[in-house]
């Protein structure tokens, strides 16, 4: 008997509206454990919105998002309907999800170490000494152990983003969400962050990444999902998607990308 594995993330027919505009038009997608999935597409395609729905930073209107089998953001009622889950419940369901933002969102009045250990101390309840040990480990993992006591203002963009990754890692999430992690960085600094993400992937982290870095997607992703105008247009292994795209829209998107940036891989 084949054992069915629960997907880490299962998105079923998810829809979201902003007023009249339907931003997500029935998305179906799965991310299996230890898989690295990259979401690509033009701006306005809804990829960031979808990512933010996964940890309920944005509210989706219809459909289901199951994180490790549990419904995200909503509670089922006795009569079959559902209602928005309370804040405490939502906070709980985010425990296994780590998030890295485009603009890092470090807290400027705290050092790198303080940023990394804050959630360990106040959410996981760890004593300061244990938290700092773990914090140091995570900072070493991203190559910034010597900057532990620096303030964000003194760090480059790439370093700040790596601290942000360390901060998310410290809580030992099983799934990491990345929202255009390198879009706000100067080109020279992008490489360091991608290197950290590469090593996370090879260590088996489940990752869902919204990115413009096609080269990275081609190299690291197990699967690439192309979105446009609020729907999934095509998805599959990077080799297939980048070298023999089926849909004309993906072909057009890749063409304009390679025209500006050169070959994907």
């Amino acid at each position: 008997m084949e054992e069915t594995i629960t997907p880490a993330i299962k998105i079923s027919d998810v829809r979201k509206r902003y007023g009249q505009h339907e931003v997500l038009q029935g998305i179906d997608m799965e991310v299996m454990p230890r898989e690295v999935v990259c979401l690509i597409g033009p701006s306005g395609s809804g990829k960031s919105t979808l990512l933010r729905c996964v940890n309920f930073l944005e509210v989706y209107d219809e459909g289901e998002i199951l994180v490790e089998g549990a419904l995200m953001g909503y509670e089922m009622q006795y009569n079959g309907t559902r209602r928005r889950a309370g804040e405490a419940r939502i906070r709980d369901s985010r425990r296994d999800l780590g998030m890295v933002f485009q603009h890092f969102n470090l807290w400027p009045h705290m050092t790198a170490m303080e940023n990394v250990t804050e959630a360990l101390i106040s959410v996981a309840g760890k004593p300061r000494a244990t938290a700092e040990k773990k914090g140091m480990e995570c900072l070493e993992r991203v190559g910034l152990a010597e900057k532990a006591h620096s303030y964000p203002a003194k760090l480059s963009g790439g370093q700040q983003q790596r601290v942000a990754i360390a901060r998310a890692l410290a809580m030992e999430p099983r799934i990491m969400l990345f929202d255009e992690p390198t879009s706000a960085l100067d080109p020279e600094l992008v490489g360091d962050v991608l290197q950290v993400m590469r090593s996370l992937a090879s260590d088996g982290m489940t990752m869902l990444i919204v990115t413009h870095e096609m080269g990275f997607a081609a190299e690291v992703a197990d699967r690439v999902v192309f979105m446009e105008g609020g729907s999934v247009v095509e998805q599959g292994p990077p080799d297939k998607l980048f070298h023999s795209p089926e849909s004309p829209r993906l072909a057009a998107f890749l063409k304009s990308w390679t025209h500006r940036n050169g070959q994907v891989a």
């Binding site: 930073l57 906070r91 933002f101 969102n105 807290w107 106040s122 959410v123 998310a168």
Partner: peptide, 25 residues
């Protein structure tokens, strides 16, 4: 707003966000 989002994503409670992230700043 991003700083509050990061705090929420890490699971910090409202009170904790107020005292550790917002008030000092």
């Amino acid at each position: 707003a991003g700083q509050i989002e990061a705090a929420k994503a890490l699971g910090l409670s409202r009170m904790r966000i107020l005292t550790r992230i917002q008030l000092p700043q």
